[in-house]
């Protein structure tokens, strides 16, 4: 699924204006607020769905090669986090949906879970 399709599916706001971000292919999804759970159980290169907006969400994303982060419940990280994400060319999205609803729609839309094998 393309990132642009996810934006459309969930009515997301794109927090960064990264060229070509919408064409990124997303092959799986992992959702958690605890970053140790992401590190322990997440597969390679997913969309990360989280309510955690601090800098650790970005560093965790870097460690497991996340392709994009989706912040739920209308959350948006601060300017420092946005600047770091821009420097790393990591797309950040925000949706007003809850984590449950966002994940439900993504799964129904055909995006599978990304878990460590």
């Amino acid at each position: 699924m393309l990132l642009a399709e996810i934006v459309s599916l969930l009515g997301c706001t794109e927090l960064l204006d990264l060229e070509g971000a919408g064409n990124r292919e997303i092959t799986g999804c992992f959702a958690a607020d605890l970053m140790s759970e992401v590190l322990a159980f997440c597969g390679h290169g997913p969309l990360l769905v989280t309510g955690l907006t601090n800098v650790q969400s970005l560093h965790t994303a870097e460690i497991v090669d996340v392709k994009a982060i989706l912040y739920v419940n209308g959350k948006c990280p601060d300017v420092q986090v946005l600047a770091l994400a821009r420097a790393r060319e990591l797309p950040l999205l925000s949706t007003t949906m809850t984590m449950y609803e966002a994940c439900g729609r993504l799964h129904r839309g055909g995006l599978p879970a990304s878990t460590k094998v």
Binding site: L34, M35, S36, E37, L52, T60
Partner: peptide
């Protein structure tokens, strides 16, 4: 925990 750590998985 609010920082996303402390899950007992470290």
């Amino acid at each position: 925990r609010a920082r996303g750590f402390g899950a007992g998985l470290g």
